[in-house]
Amino acid sequence: MIEVEGISKTYGKVLALDDIHFNTKKGELFGLIGPDGAGKTSLFRILTSLLLPDKGRASVAGFDVVKDYKKIRSIIGYMPGRFSLYPDLSVEENLQFFAKVFKTSIEENYHLIKDIYQMLEPFKKRPAGKLSGGMKQKLALSCALIHKPEVLFLDEPTTGVDAVSRKEFWEMLAKLKEQGISILVSTPYMDEAAMCERIALIQNGRIMDINTPFGITQAFPDELFSVSSDNIIHLVKDLREYQELKTAYTFGSNIHITFKNLPDITTLQTYLEKSGHSNIKIIPENAGIEDCFMNLMQNQA
């Protein structure tokens, strides 16, 4: 559905995108995972024909993003990174306006947005600027969907949104996918990667890996352990001072570690006991997306 071949983009001296390649399939939910400043927004703008790439070519549904920009603009739905609706117009007026812009009506494609819009219905007379974060995001999605786009581009739809609304949002995306809409979504939250069919990990304008979430975690090269004790603050310090470890990163109340050489749990256990830790647990752990991302980041550096 989306084909990207060797896209590069620079702003002055800053290289925002560096030789990006990837393809998505029809009906696929594809995620671009990476922190702010990784180049996600530039890539979205190029794919939605709003920005010209310096190098490379890209197409959406077979239409070239540079030459056929008019065609692209009529078949895509786009939700930019920041809240981009009219704050002084009501929920209903916003939706009506965007329906008209795409020469359709709310009624025509109501089935698509029904589940989402029903949650907004009680507030439909309220100005969009006065909605809560989660509600704004639902309205923005409704507006991007109202013309039944073939491809949906969602740039960081869950940034700054609380965990509950985020979860609901991903449930909505899963439903849209069932209706056959191809979706490209970006997020800085690594835990959301698992909701996508395939993901690209992006950092400093480069794609570090593309695979299914499972494939990516499977490719984690080292043996990973999760360590915990009663005093996590000291545990971090002590593990960082322990020379045998390659990495030690906090994950909630645990610390994920990898060894430079062959893992030696017993020695580590003794070291931690000597350092005064109690209730020490060192157990093998399956790598998550965030583990993989940090590993790839280190390789890149």
Binding site: G34, P35, D36, G37, A38, E156, T159, G160, P188, M190, Q203, I233, V236, Y249, T250, E290, F293, M294, M297, Q298
Partner: peptide, 20 residues
């Protein structure tokens, strides 16, 4: 107030080191 929104995972952890 949401000091680490959108920050990469490694830097996010370094930020928490500063907090500690």
């Amino acid at each position: 107030d949401e000091p680490t929104g959108g920050v990469d995972p490694i830097t996010r952890r370094q930020f928490w080191d500063l907090i500690y």
